[in-house]
Computed example of a mutant assay.
Amino acid sequence: MLSDHERETLREIQRQLVVDDPDLERSFRALEKPTPTRTPPPQGRWAYTAGIAVAAVLAVVLLLAGSLGGALAFAVIAGSVSLARHLDHAARQRKRGD
């Protein structure tokens, strides 16, 4: 945290910058304005798909290795990620509809 003296020095520097170069201040103010939200790129879908694929492959490998419990655990993980993808997609659809 800044001390009172440092804060006052900073304010004085800011005031001087505004006086010396008003365009600089305007450019900083423009950066502070919130931008409209955009739909995120479809990379999230790939993350879900990759998670499902990895969990499914591990479930099969563990099943072939004779670990029924491990295979079941990864099958549950794959199902959970699939459900999360579905819920995320439904939430995005509702958001676009509003």
Rank of each mutant, 00 (worst) to 15 (best):
S80M: 12
A30I: 08
S82R: 15
G70L: 08
L24M: 06
A56C: 04
L2I: 06
Q43Y: 13
T9H: 09
T9K: 12
G70V: 04
P22F: 01
L10N: 02
D88R: 11
I77P: 00
G69L: 15
I13M: 07
H86P: 00
P36R: 15
F74W: 13
A59D: 02
A75S: 11
R94K: 15
A73D: 10
S27G: 02
T49L: 14
A50P: 01
R7T: 08
E6H: 10
A50V: 12
R26W: 08
L87W: 12
R96L: 08
R29S: 02
V54L: 13
L64T: 05
R26N: 06
L62C: 04
L87T: 05
D23M: 08
R94Q: 14
R96N: 03
K33D: 04
D4G: 00
L58D: 09
D23C: 01
G44I: 15
T35I: 13
E25C: 00
P36C: 00
R45V: 09
A47T: 13
R15W: 10
D88Q: 10
E32N: 01
A73G: 01
T35W: 14
G97I: 11
R45N: 07
R38N: 03
R29Q: 12
R45Q: 10
V57A: 06
L17G: 00
R94C: 01
A71D: 03
H5G: 01
P40Q: 12
R96V: 03
A50H: 13
L68G: 02
A53P: 04
G79T: 08
Q14F: 07
K95A: 11
D21M: 03
T39W: 14
L68I: 09
R29G: 01
R94I: 07
P42R: 14
T9E: 12
K33L: 12
Q43H: 12
A91D: 08
G44V: 13
G79D: 04
A30G: 04
L62F: 13
R38T: 09
S82C: 02
